[in-house]
């Protein structure tokens, strides 16, 4: 009797091990297909997928042709990349690193299946500096709204949606629809430690201008923008 139970337990154990191995290697196969596509489609000619080893300079950053993706898995919300890569509607109103030209809206498109595999590869690129233990709840945040509009006037460089109309400046990425796009904890991490993600940026540093509680409120407000 006990021998029988032991046999059953043992076989359940073995089956679980084999099964999870198969599942994880299947997942890995999808990921590596994603990274292969990333290389074969030339995505790497405009995007960095590893943190630069040396110090970055203003000229190195202004020479970049696209935003960094080495922290994509920390920056984006689950599901966003797979749909954006199929239909890449402009995020930045202006062409990348330009203060004159409009965004040409000509980003390479992927089919649904390829986009899913590239997205899963990119979502695995995590940043050590993400402050994942801080809870940032996206949504209506009156304090955050006042800070965003009055105290720091973040709309000076960022478009937001005001009752269906675009309002604000153009030099930063649009913050319309961040509720679907950006991970709330990444927004907080960026505001409290810009140097970890964008050490050279036209955006002023807010750490030290805003208190920690204010940065939390700002992050929560921005994370909920529709």
């Amino acid at each position: 009797m006990s021998k029988y139970i032991r046999l059953v337990l043992l076989s359940v154990f073995i089956l679980t091990v084999v099964f999870s191995f198969l599942l994880s290697s299947a997942a890995r196969a999808v990921e590596s297909a994603g990274s292969k596509t990333f290389i074969s489609r030339g995505c790497g000619s405009c995007h960095r997928t590893a943190r630069p080893a040396g110090p970055v300079t203003r000229s190195s950053e202004l020479a970049k042709k696209g935003p960094d993706l080495w922290y994509a898995g920390s920056k984006f919300r689950e599901g966003f990349l797979a749909s954006w890569l199929v239909n890449p509607t402009p995020i930045r109103p202006l062409a990348y690193n330009s203060l004159e030209e409009k965004n040409p809206a000509d980003h390479p498109r992927l089919d649904v299946k390829t986009a899913a595999s590239v997205a899963s590869y990119l979502m695995d690129l995590k940043a050590a500096d993400l402050m994942s233990s801080v809870e940032i709840r996206p949504g209506v945040n009156v304090r955050g709204r006042i800070l965003f509009i009055k105290k720091f006037a973040c709309y000076g460089c960022h478009l937001v949606n005001v009752r269906g109309n675009k309002a604000g400046g153009l030099s930063g990425p649009s913050l319309e629809g961040t509720v679907r796009r950006l991970n709330p904890q990444w927004i907080y991490s960026l505001l409290i430690n810009q140097g970890a993600f964008t050490p050279v940026s036209r955006m002023p540093i807010y750490e030290g201008l805003a208190r920690e509680a204010e940065i939390k409120a700002l992050a929560s407000y921005v994370a909920g923008l529709k």
């Binding site: 109103p93 202006l94 004159e100 000076g156 675009k166 309002a167 400046g169 030099s171 036209r202």
Partner: peptide
């Protein structure tokens, strides 16, 4: 790098952030 985005390439107050909605 920092000021032209609002104050304009020649400093005339007409950078890309000086949109009508501001």
């Amino acid at each position: 790098f920092y000021c032209v985005q609002c104050h304009g390439a020649e400093g005339r107050g007409d950078g890309p952030n000086a949109t009508e909605s501001q």
